[in-house]
Amino acid sequence: MEGMTKPITVAGRIAALAAAVVVLVAGTTACTAQNKGPQVSDTATARPNSSESGTVPASPSGESTTPAPPSGGSLPSTAPGGSASPEAVPTALSWKTYTDPAKSVSFEVPQEWIVQSVAPDAGSLPGALKVEVKDAAGRYVATLQTGLPAAAPADCPVGQAKPYVVISSVPLDVPHSGGSGTIEPRVVFRVIQGYKFFGSFGITNVVAGADGQSCELRNRVQGPAGKGDIAFGDVTALHAFAVDEKVAPAKSFDTLDLAAKYVAHGAEFANVQRMLLSLKVNL
């Protein structure tokens, strides 16, 4: 894990990381009791080999399939340790609620953050919204979009899928459509392995990939028929970047440990998670 030129060994390394994440979770859970923001219940835990984690695809019959055990050079399909998602504790002391003029969406942001409505992307459905969120210094944080036209998953040729891991997965109540290849909506932070570990936060009800591997992790919720999809996150889709590609606004980490610590202790993610969980959509 010290460099991407060496293969990842699951035995020992992942076990050690699992213990570290359990410590991180325990520490943040203790702090959560004093947090005045929305509380994360026990139902927010990421369950290994569970379709609710967003890591296991639905079979044609609608039943979940169980991913194969990770082997050398691949990541586990759920957060290291598998028993609980880190519970971030928001650090912003004062919050405000953004509501669009038509009152079709609302969400909370730290008082100093900037929320700006911009023109929807070309091809969006009538009544679609696009709202950008920036922090107090004007740095980009996330984009909320509604009325997105349905989009087919990216092509994923045999042998091109990359290992990924769901570090945090928390239920979200927003309008959505179900069916094959979907789960209940979640607020997630997921990492995919390339020359580094690339991470992204967002909302989704789209199954990520089979057997803990994928070419693209999609941050979108399939909306009810005729209403379009909903996206809220730093990027609408995450992939393993090439060396010459721009990574931002997605995140990159040298190790999986650092990605887990970003979720468990990072002030940015703590505030972002509260913002995403506060989303209300009226379609």
Rank of each mutant, 00 (worst) to 15 (best):
A237K: 04
F253E: 08
G123M: 06
Q34G: 11
V21R: 00
A18L: 01
P70H: 07
A84D: 13
P90G: 02
A18F: 01
P60E: 05
L217W: 05
D254T: 11
V166W: 00
G3E: 15
T28S: 15
G209L: 04
A92N: 05
T236D: 14
A33C: 10
P120A: 06
G233A: 06
A20P: 09
C31D: 14
D42L: 11
T97L: 13
G266C: 07
I8A: 10
A15E: 15
A11W: 14
P224H: 08
D234R: 00
L17H: 06
L129T: 01
P163Q: 00
R13D: 15
Y164T: 01
Y140M: 01
V115R: 05
P157V: 06
T29F: 10
T97N: 13
A210G: 09
V188I: 14
P86A: 03
R218H: 05
L238Y: 02
P60T: 01
P48V: 13
S61E: 09
G202K: 07
V263A: 03
P185T: 06
S104L: 06
I8F: 12
T182E: 02
Y98H: 10
S180I: 08
V115S: 00
K246F: 09
E108H: 09
Y164D: 02
N282V: 10
A30M: 12
T255G: 04
A152V: 14
P67A: 05
A88R: 03
T45W: 14
A68D: 12
A119C: 05
L17Q: 08
F269D: 07
A270T: 06
T43Y: 14
D121Q: 04
